[in-house]
Design a protein around this nucleic acid. Structure first.
Length: 204
DNA sequence: CCATTAACACGGT
DNA sequence: ACCGTGTTAATGG
């Protein structure tokens, strides 16, 4: 599979179009579900999750992004409200570019427009994969769906040396299962040889 | 904070 | 009646 950097416009370019960098603390909210999209966000370093909560208060994580990735981009073209919150998982530095400036940027520099198409396509593609695996009642299918997604993202081309950086709780919230179920299923998958687990790290 | 385990309730097959 | 998941609680890292 092709590796896609999934976004990463040069920082200098972002700054020249009105981008500003901001520091966020762990747990800090970048935007809230229901807000209007006003900025393009690109992570310099740190980690961000997109989430929301169901009626019972159970968290569902839609995605987790790391360095050099952008998030919330689709709303820049849509004049709708954010369907999720964006929350920093750890201390992070993020560049934000005002929406209008960003639109001007990609109009002026068509190669970024193309890259953005590739990026959004990739996210759509894996949303479909995830949706399919999430429709399964079987925890193992949901987990392999997530693992495939993460692996392709993290552009590892070696056989089975991709280390999952997520906590079990985060995994559980990404696939809609309880953490205990995730632990039980992962252990079974390890025993059956689909994954390897060494000192609590998942290798796929 | 996170991971693991056990005991139990409960629903589906 | 069995199996797997969620719930709760205890324990260890």
């Amino acid at each position: 599979m092709k590796t896609i950097s999934c976004m990463n416009i040069g920082e200098d370019i972002l700054y020249s179009y009105g981008g500003e960098i901001r520091q966020y603390k762990k747990g800090e909210l970048i935007y809230r579900e229901g807000d209007h999209a006003l900025y393009y966000f690109q992570i310099v370093n740190g980690k961000v999750k997109l989430n929301n909560y169901d009626e019972e208060g159970k968290e569902f994580i839609h995605n987790i992004f790391g360095g050099k990735q952008s998030f919330g981009d689709s709303l820049l073209f849509l004049d709708k409200f954010y369907p999720t919150n964006a929350v920093c998982i750890g201390p992070s530095e993020i560049i934000r570019v005002p929406k209008e400036q960003f639109l001007k940027l990609i109009k002026t520099e068509p190669k970024f427009s193309l890259e953005m198409n590739a990026c959004l396509s990739q996210r759509l593609y894996f949303k479909a994969i995830m949706l399919q695996s999430m429709a399964s009642l079987n925890p193992a299918s949901r987990l392999t769906g997530l693992l495939d997604y993460l692996k392709s993202y993290h552009d590892d081309s070696c056989g089975s040396c991709f280390q999952v950086e997520l906590t079990r709780q985060q995994i559980a919230n990404l696939v809609g299962l309880r953490v205990e179920t995730v632990i039980r299923a992962l252990k079974k998958m390890g025993k059956e040889g689909y994954i390897t687990i060494e000192n609590r790290k998942i290798i796929y």
